[in-house]
Nucleic acid binder design. Structure first.
Lengths: 210, 210, 210, 210
DNA sequence: TATTAACCGAGACGGTACGTCGGGTCTTGTA
DNA sequence: TACAAGACCCGACGTACCGTCTCGGTTAATA
């Protein structure tokens, strides 16, 4: 008897991990060269040296593939180094996020998959778990640090705390996104300083209210 | 600036204004039913009772058509009623913008055309002039009113004033956009109040700094 | 009023007769080069300088297209020159038919479409009207001539006459087909003479029976 | 002559004879259900409860497999019972051959593999040895019997005798094939009688010629 | 009022990509 | 070594849209 792995497939040739990697790399390269609109799955497959069927066996379509391809970039490039103070931490994450959004593959892909996700719940869930929620942990971590430093009070009502974190997350991510992709202007250190000051000021004033 | 465009055509049958209207209406209807991704120009044409030729004579492609179709909604539905105070004005515009973004045609279209525009300068310019700049005037108007009420100081340096308005615009538009489309959560009066308080608090604290 | 062609399409761009011709030519060329098995409609289209859609607008599939393409060859190359006697006429048509079946495009195509037609009634009808029935008229014409010459009696029962013609048709066409494609041996003048003698002898002996 | 083919493999697991049988049965079943055109080797393998590898180890492709599958039917169902006279013997073999060709698996397969064989010499050889030559022995046997009965003379020139047998074979097999598959009409006893009469009459008249 | 140039609908056209299917090969674990 | 399973590469399938191009026919400003 032995084995009987509960869910896993047991027989047949196993899927090639090499192929997975090659496909995601090819997807990012194609995004850089062609952008979302002109990217085709046939082209991705041939760049990856892989048959189209191999690609479709793993991903249901362009959107799902691109989400996974750019999610890896978010994992690699977003972190929250401790800069010693709340405003400096915010500046840091803003600059990091902006740098990510200015990469050609991210810039062209992120808005597109979000647009698709407005009509596709499964895709939205995938974006949320692969990209959005991971960014949000940075906000939570930043708050913890600020509270440890005494820069922010400990919130007594946990519901209010969550709402507050969500708000701050939308403010930071949304503002940088809009600046970068809609206004199409670059984020430099000075802009990051101004924006972080605004947020910190806002937090301070809100914190004083009951 | 009367009429008589010097090089304009003079003879022949003029274009049907009826057709323009029918096409834009059909575009919005198709966006609601199908979303950006599944919208096809052939379908728009047949909904509008119009030949594809007629459509292509007026718009270069899907993106341009959709920008014009949703721009009309922005023109119709965005304004800045005077609610008597800066924070209330911000709350009002936030709720209005959120309501617009929750319409199915806007939700699916706006991110998509922005995504396309990351690779197409002409499209970006069209979006800017047809949609973005018109929203920005609301920010400028709001500032004027707040200054007239004495809620905000007059900025002496015009460059700094512009930068400030741009920042506030990115904060407001970006946050609402992110909340609505990325976080996919609705904007209610309470959220609008919290967010507006944050912005006003931030503005106050920044205003006090040199 | 005037026109109103009852069934014909009136509006829109008319179909290109040039395309029809180019597609059939390309089909024959591809049959020669590749044979039935390796012939693809995409390749035919590109040889013809035509889009695949143009091809599919006219023909439902490979079989239908090939039937039409080879039918044209039958029309061009089968006739019944009067050689002055029944046996000589049969020899002539046998040689002609064999020459047709030895062309590479016919050889590879005819059996293939007949094979397909065993499962497709519409295809069988198409083959019958485009190819088979036209050959059969040669048999009927040959009989008329032979009767005019006094070589064959006039059949009094029309049903028996039809059955007889069908039989002779199956004998002639079938034997040549089998010799050429199944036995895969060539048909020369001597073989044609032997075969025609057999048929004429058989006819004579049958004719003497009640 | 038992086994022990000199160069044959000796070690390892021997091939399953069960699998061979299951594959050929599955092939015939699939031919009946799907016809040649829609028959796929993957489907045959799964019907047979066998991996595709196992199938490809034994046959090079669809054509070869189908030739073997239908050849078995020819072996089973063709024989030449002695009916006491040349014409009756011919009628018998005609009816038998026609019955075979009216089976769905034979009907759809035979023309298809012959069509393939026009471009594939190895396949043609396989068809010849597995199917055609076995039918031809019936013709030779029939001639022997007729000569024994005194219905046909002994041919002095062996070359002419071979040519004659080939001709009669093409006439009989070809005519039945054409009647059944091209004309798509059934072969009944009366048609068989007419046709056999024609052949016997032809043979008689030819026999009298030098 | 007649001319005439630009418009209009319909739909065929050459393309490109789609997502699926089948062919034949290869790579697992098991017998 | 064979076997079942199933992933692999390849190439064709038939469809859908793209944006362009004829068609025959209409319409309004101009001459």
């Amino acid at each position: 008897m032995t084995s009987a792995s509960p869910s896993g497939r047991r027989t047949g040739r196993p899927r090639s991990a090499e192929a997975d990697r090659a496909i995601l790399d090819a997807t990012r390269a194609a995004l850089v060269e062609l952008g979302w609109g002109k990217l085709t799955l046939g082209d991705v497959a041939s760049r990856a040296g892989v048959a189209k069927t191999t690609l479709y066996r793993r991903w249901a379509g362009k959107s799902e593939l691109v989400v996974d391809a750019v999610a890896a970039l978010f994992d690699e490039h977003l972190e929250l180094p401790d800069r010693g103070g709340l405003q400096a931490d915010i500046e840091g994450v803003v600059l990091q996020f902006a740098a990510l959004l200015e990469r050609p593959e991210t810039k062209t892909a992120l808005m597109a998959v979000v647009a698709e996700s407005t009509r596709d719940d499964a895709l939205r869930a995938r974006i949320r778990s692969a990209i959005v929620d991971r960014q949000k942990t940075l906000v939570l971590l930043g708050r913890e640090r600020a509270q440890a430093r005494g820069e922010l009070p400990h919130e007594s009502d946990p519901g209010a705390a969550d709402r507050n974190a969500d708000l701050i997350f939308d403010v930071i991510a949304g503002t940088v996104l809009h600046r970068t992709l809609v206004s199409a202007e670059s984020v430099d250190a000075e802009w990051a300083r101004s924006f972080a000051a605004l947020v910190v000021g806002g937090l301070a004033s809100v914190g004083t209210l009951p």
